[in-house]
């Protein structure tokens, strides 16, 4: 699904990623953990195609295609989705219309007929159940006046509608209380399938109690220092990150 080899990225003059390698297979759930400033959000943004990140070395293959030259909208059409850490408010752009345009752009890209208003609405109603979205949020402008929790739910709702093949969830758990976290985690779990891979970028092990990863990676200083199964997350929770860094330095 996703293959990242020796990725070096800088933002402005600052080098953030330093030879990152990552392989994600179809249907797998990966967690990327790491201390602040380790490059987690940079990785998420690079994958989504945000401007301002310069790839100076390495390659990213997504479904056998070179991801690097693709503009963000083409990545979305190819089934890549980023749930933002801080979803932006867009006054004047309606939530539902955004989704309708998005889903139809994706369908067109795949050679499928566009959904008409009725089909689309029926589909949206169904998907709202995934994260208990309140109906009035639908008709509002994108994220405008949403609470922190509502914004995060809206991201997962969008994911449910757009049905990506690879979803990157950038700190979707941050700022959520335990009830909201459960709703979001249940939503994500209901979207797991053998054709869909998920990358959870997170600080805390807490989320991984609800969404169980196949692999856990420790990102620090711009590269993956250690990978393991879900028990690694528990160990990190207990011991912090320093021992991983020390281990890597010794090697």
């Amino acid at each position: 699904m996703l293959s990242i080899k020796n990725l070096h990225v800088k933002v402005g003059n600052k080098k953030i990623l330093n030879g990152l390698n990552l392989e994600i297979g179809s249907g797998e759930v990966h967690a990327i953990m790491g201390p602040n400033g380790s490059g987690k959000s940079t990785l998420a943004n690079v994958l989504a195609g945000k401007d301002g990140y310069e790839i100076i070395e390495g390659e990213i293959q997504y479904l056998g295609k070179d991801l690097v030259p693709m503009p963000p909208e083409e990545r979305a059409c190819e089934g890549l989705f980023l749930a933002f850490q801080y979803p932006v408010e867009i006054p004047g752009v309606n939530n539902v219309y955004l989704l309708k345009a998005g889903i139809n752009a994706i369908r067109k890209h795949r050679g499928l007929p566009e959904l008409d208003a009725m089909e689309f609405l029926a589909m949206v109603k169904e998907k709202m159940k995934v994260v208990n979205m309140k109906e009035d949020l639908l008709s509002r402008a994108v994220n405008e006046g949403f609470s922190g929790g509502e914004k995060k739910r809206n991201e997962i709702f969008q994911m449910a509608v757009l049905e990506p093949k690879l979803a990157i969830l950038d700190e979707t758990d941050s700022g959520l209380d335990i009830d909201a976290l459960k709703i979001v985690a249940n939503g994500v779990n209901s979207l797991l399938s053998k054709d869909r891979s998920i990358v959870l970028v997170t600080h805390y092990q807490r989320l991984l109690n609800f969404i169980v990863p196949d692999q856990v990676h420790v990102l620090s200083g711009g590269k993956i220092l250690k990978s393991g199964d879900k028990s690694l997350a528990l160990e990190l929770e207990e011991r912090g990150y320093d021992w991983v860094t020390a281990e890597a330095d010794a090697a």
Partner: peptide, 29 residues
């Protein structure tokens, strides 16, 4: 706004459409 533009593009909206949309939203206020 670059971050709004990027957000729309990650939702499969192409750049030209996203720009027009944000311009419309700005005026429509």
């Amino acid at each position: 706004d670059e971050s709004m533009l990027h957000y729309l593009r990650t939702r499969a909206i192409n750049e030209d459409v996203a720009k027009s949309l944000l311009t419309f939203a700005f005026a429509d206020e």
